[in-house]
């Protein structure tokens, strides 16, 4: 689906990504974890064509997309759900969705677009209730759902999500990740950047760890969850807590 090789990205003299290679197979959920400033967002933005790369190759569905204009990348089937949602605050929910479906509208017409809006409403019933409300008046969780819905409208083969749980209440985070799993189950491949490394690894099949713009670890989610460096740096003390008394409790009759 996606194959990135030796990607170098700089902002001016500052190298943000150094020689990054990763791949996402069709149907997978792959997660990128790393501290703030590690280059995760930059990686997604350069795949989406929003940030120019200085070197390397990005192959999407077998075709080179490095240097291709962002709208063409969307049209090719790769959508980004940006960090901080970036919904069109002054527009109603429905119009946000229709805008996201512009590629599909040009391709298949109004009827298909309407049909896609219905599908998004099925996934996120709350958006139907807020249909005519201005996006800027939605709660954080609702805005995130809208951002995901908007990306879905382009019927992507690969959806890249940048920190979808940022700033959301724990319960809402759970909902959002369940939605990501559902989207994946419906056949969309997912590349997920998530602060909440543990939850991300739970739904992903594989992951990469970025540090200072370099991949330092990669492996299946189980391997990364068991890696002590990952535990210390990204999973925090919750791991120890879970292995302690909580783990013992379940074993008692």
């Amino acid at each position: 689906m996606l194959k990135v090789r030796n990607l170098d990205v700089s902002y001016g003299p500052l190298a943000v990504l150094r020689n990054v290679s990763l791949h996402v197979n069709p149907g997978e959920i792959v997660t990128l974890i790393g501290a703030n400033g590690a280059g995760k967002t930059t990686l997604l933005r350069s795949v989406a064509g929003l940030v120019p790369a200085r070197g390397g190759a990005i192959a999407f569905r077998g075709a080179e997309v490095r240097g291709v204009r962002p709208e063409r990348i969307v049209a090719a089937g790769c959508s980004l759900v940006p960090e901080g949602r970036q919904v069109f605050a002054a527009m109603p929910v429905r119009e946000n969705l229709l805008l996201g479906g512009y590629v599909q509208y040009r391709r298949a017409g109004r009827r298909e677009s309407r049909h896609d809006v219905e599908h998004v409403y099925e996934l996120f019933p709350v958006l139907r209730q807020r249909e005519r409300q201005l996006a800027g008046t939605l709660s954080g969780g609702e805005q995130q759902m809208l951002a995901i819905g908007r990306a879905l409208m382009a019927r992507p083969a690969l959806m890249m999500l940048d920190e979808p749980s940022m700033g959301l209440a724990p319960l809402v985070v759970k909902d959002i990740l369940a939605i990501v799993e559902r989207i994946s189950a419906e056949g969309t491949t997912v590349l997920l950047v998530e602060q909440n490394a543990r939850s991300a690894l739970r739904i992903a099949s594989r992951g990469y760890v970025l540090e200072n713009g370099r991949i330092v670890l990669q492996g299946t989610s189980d391997e990364l969850l068991a890696n002590r460096d990952v535990q210390r740096a990204y999973l925090g003390s919750e791991v120890e807590a879970e292995r302690g008394p909580a783990a013992g409790k379940g074993e008692r009759p």
């Binding site: 290679s21 990763l22 370099r214 991949i215």
Partner: peptide, 20 residues
């Protein structure tokens, strides 16, 4: 070809780690 991509990714991560 897929194997080669996997090897390259893993080699890069390994070299970054041993260097550090």
């Amino acid at each position: 070809a897929e194997l080669e991509q996997l090897q390259l990714e893993r080699l890069e991560a390994t070299l970054n780690r041993v260097y550090r």
